[in-house]
Design a protein around this nucleic acid. Sequence first.
DNA 1: ATGGCAGTTCCTAACTGA
Length: 262
Amino acid sequence: MKIATWNVNSIRTRQEQVVDWLQTNKVDVLCLQETKVVDPDFPRSPFEDLGYHLYIYGQKAYNGVAIFSLKPLEQVGTGFTAVLKEDEVGELDEQKRVITGAVDGVRIVNLYVPNGASVGSDKYEYKLRWLKILREYLRSLLEKPPQALCVCGDFNIALENRDIYNPKGREKHIMASPAERQALQEVLALGLADAFRKFTTEEGHFSWWDYRHDGFNRNRGWRIDHLYLTPNLYEQATSCAIDISPRKLTKPSDHAPVIVEL
DNA sequence: ATGGCAGTTCCTAACTGA
């Protein structure tokens, strides 16, 4: 079973590239982030024509997540509503950042973690609160079968210095600050391990490169797109890799897809 | 860095992203 995650930075702009990629990478499940389109306007047919079932959760202009699956998903859910108190729903579930579903005994959780703007900003505080709710949400999911989880997406956090091209002095940089790394570590303490690091331990492997300053060609990147697995799935993983080829195309997403094979 | 690119909409300016 192959599961991929890809922040496409607008599915309408990237539609052709995603179709091309799926034709040569017949993954069982593709998790998308930053689809940037309301559900009625989502370009469904190009992907349904490839045999995928589509589960989409979008909004206008910003955010938006989707799961494509060759087999139909069960237990599909969106947002944090299941674990939020009523007065928190509006604030933390307004933005479309979470979609989940189960297939073949694996529960897929597709996330687009808030960026956080800059350390100390209101958006940064929102990011930290969001990660706390994420922990409660995943804890609640782990209480019912299937308890095999693949939690993937754009985390907007580089967990370790080896995940950044130039980690020196990044303590105050968004995506590398101690508080957000700690918040993610507390999520992972539920029992989730990074599939990529099972196979690759060295530095210099990234999933996002800034459009500016020729970041990709200079390999000035960050590894912020992750696939986390519960122990049984982690044991079953046979490969996990970043496919940088779509990043080389004209008008690419700033993120590359990451694929795990179970 | 009031920066850099790219996407979107309140669409040719302002916002958000990372």
